[in-house]
Design a protein around this nucleic acid. Structure first.
Lengths: 72, 72
DNA sequence: AGTAATTTGTTCGTATGTATC
DNA sequence: AGATACATACGAACAAATTAC
């Protein structure tokens, strides 16, 4: 079992991908489950990572819809 | 059972107390367990709150020692 | 109209590791 | 060696909003 990325590292990775335009403003991120698969971590870890990215003001979560990249 | 504060609210509260000088730069915060008692939440929730405060650059954790308020 | 499925929000507890005292 | 304290991952449980049928 490879060492998993920490939720902080995942938050930094998501932050960088958003800044790089991979996830443009207004677009929806993959679901928690999809991201968990992409990063090979649990859904809980993705959620903790996204809490940081939300706190950084880069994304907004919406229950039932998804997590969207903020404008600006 | 009263509704517990969310970890985000606790993070905001800690941020405000630091900003107000209640926890001066260089000082040590109460331990996770002490804060859990003060806020009537689990240690896990305090840890999640502190992840945000750490990400905001206001405190630095040091395993075995405690969590300290950053300078500046 | 209503129910089920999907998705995020949040808390809690457990386990393990590392660092300090 | 042992106790204390933070770091991190994981999973369970439930809530709430949305969507699909």
């Amino acid at each position: 079992m490879p060492i998993p990325m920490s939720s902080r590292q995942i938050a930094d990775d998501l932050t960088e991908r958003i800044r790089a335009g991979e996830y443009p403003p207004g677009s929806r991120l993959p679901t928690l489950r999809e991201l968990a698969g992409l990063y090979s971590v649990s859904v809980s870890s993705i959620q903790r990572a996204q809490e940081l990215v939300k706190d950084r003001g880069l994304v907004l979560g919406s229950p039932g819809r998804g997590v969207y990249v903020a404008d600006r």
